[in-house]
Amino acid sequence: MRLILDVWRQDDAASPGRFERYEVAEATPEMSLLELLDMLNAQLVTEGRDPIAFDHDCREGICGSCGVMIDGRPHGPVDSTPACLQRVRNYAAGDIVTIEPFRAGAFPVIRDLVVDRSSLDRIITAGGYISTATNAAPEALTLPVNKHQAEAAMDHAACIGCGACVAACPNGAAQLFAGAKVAHLAELPQGQVERYERVRSMVTTMEDMFGSCTNYGECVPACPAGIELDVIAHLNRDFRRAVIHERRGEQPRRDDVPWLARLRSGPWLQSDPDDRPTDDRDADA
């Protein structure tokens, strides 16, 4: 079946972009929309033209690499489904499919449909983990976890880090993403020790880069991992508590640590070796 594709082309972050129109003559219904791009790219390469750059990897909905706006919706026409699993069968012959990169201030375009989503990992870097050093863990059975809690933690942990929630949000907010991680770790007994410091640090880092959540709720249908709005309530609740703890002086601030300031201002991936924090353990050597 014949489809018309309007695709965003942009050489690099600095260049202006534009839509270009292409035609694919023999799309088949069971193809994914990424396979449709493969087909178009094969055509372009045969003609000696630059193929369309797009991120993808697992092609089975788990790595979170893929992510483009299709007809104005993150990932495409079907709710809760990543681009790699959206199928051509949702289109009729002659339809126009518009494909452009995720649009969000925190996701600058790198080329064509490829955007830089490292701002999401900055949020994780600020606290989205449990600080247990290798070899320091107790026997796993000493931490029984209620089955329902484990299931709920798994629900939240399912986030694939694609950024569709941000792209869907009129404010470009990342609350669904951050909330999913906060809720996952807060649900488990292991996550309690750092619970409030974690959320405070993640939220303040997030607010430096992303817009503010005003509860539009557009993120939920766009989310391919089924993350629910309740994680945002969770995030807000824990953040409020963290602020109260801090006011009462119950919460040490990690802000004074130079790396955290650097993390906020970037370039976050580079760290200056001379500026490394001294490992306490070194002192006993």
């Binding site: 449990i130 247990t132 070899n135 863990a137 796993a140 484990a150 299931e151 798994m154 942990a157």
Partner: peptide, 22 residues
């Protein structure tokens, strides 16, 4: 044996029995 302990401590939501065991 140590791997499971470590992963559990890191917050991997392993499936659980009703009694809370993995």
């Amino acid at each position: 044996v140590r791997v499971i302990d470590h992963l559990t401590a890191l917050g991997v939501p392993f499936a659980r029995e009703y009694g809370g065991q993995i």
